[in-house]
């Protein structure tokens, strides 16, 4: 078992689109163990600012451990300045992975909003080996929130996009794309990750048609090890931690405020 916490080297750190970046970490010991839906808790530099580590879904585990991120605050801004050969302190991978769709499932629909697409590339890497109808429904605010998604295409995903302003794909929320989902509870499985209102919409849709699904949640986190109980969210069975009980939960379990 690899150590819980390791210092690794940055392999590359590229801007994939005006908004989204990809950090590749040379972390061989972790690549074999990590499963889709799990995350790593990163510390970009020593020192006290920023104080917390930052949690990121693992985007891919091919040659390197890959993290897909959007610089939106001091922590991610610092991360965007990392260059090849720099050190990065990696805790993890931790958290619950997605469960794999059962044998009777024919269509897998991944529903992502913005940076919520991060955990789905590795999921599609795993699922492409099965004879499934892989669908990605992606919602972003504008064209700037959409990126090529080349790897998803290579994995055989059918990609449908919606933007709030209609600059790419359908105009409106990602719920505009729900017509692509087969409403058969026996053969359809949903996975979703994104802003809470979007995941709540997926949950309501799934409930209406009795579809099974899973949701990957995000919260501000301190420890990522289930110790501080800081990242608790409401579920149908009380508070649960996103870091330890999640980040993947049953779609019908989470109570979105």
């Amino acid at each position: 078992m690899p150590a819980l916490q390791n210092i690794f080297k940055v392999a590359s750190n590229d801007k994939l689109s005006p908004r989204f970046h990809r950090l590749c970490i040379k972390s061989k010991p972790l690549i074999k163990d990590v499963k889709p839906g799990q995350f790593v808790h990163l510390r970009v530099r020593d020192g006290l600012e920023p104080f917390f580590r930052r949690p990121f879904s693992v985007y891919r585990n091919k040659k390197h451990l890959e993290v897909f991120y959007e610089p939106i605050g001091p922590g991610t801004e610092l991360m965007s300045q990392l260059r090849e050969g720099d050190d990065i302190d990696v805790l993890g991978p931790v958290g619950t992975p997605f469960s794999m769709p059962g044998k009777n499932i024919k269509q897998v629909v991944m529903i992502a909003g913005g940076i919520g697409i991060a955990p789905f590339l590795m999921l599609s890497d795993v699922l492409k080996r099965r004879n499934l109808d892989l669908v990605l429904l992606y919602g972003g605010r504008t064209m700037g929130h959409v990126y090529p998604m080349k790897e998803f295409k290579e994995n055989g995903c059918k990609i449908f996009v919606a933007t709030d302003d209609g600059s790419v794909g359908a105009k409106g929320r990602v719920s505009k794309l729900f017509s692509k989902i087969n409403k058969d509870p026996k053969t359809t499985m949903l996975y979703t990750c994104g802003p809470n209102p979007m995941m709540a919409a997926v949950q309501a849709f799934a409930k209406k048609y009795h579809l099974k699904g899973e949701v990957a949640c995000e919260e501000v986190m301190a420890c990522a090890l289930g110790a501080c109980l800081g990242c608790s969210i409401r579920t149908t069975s009380g508070f649960k931690t996103v870091c330890y009980d999640g980040p993947v939960f049953d779609l019908d379990e989470v109570i979105f405020d």
């Binding site: 006290l48 104080f51 919260e219 501080c228």
Partner: peptide
């Protein structure tokens, strides 16, 4: 005890605030 409603923590300069509520 189920603890306090979220958000329960926030990062501050060189530290953090918590209000877990002894869950």
């Amino acid at each position: 005890q189920e603890g306090n409603p979220p958000p329960r923590i926030i990062e501050t300069p060189s530290g953090m605030l918590n209000a877990i509520g002894i869950e």
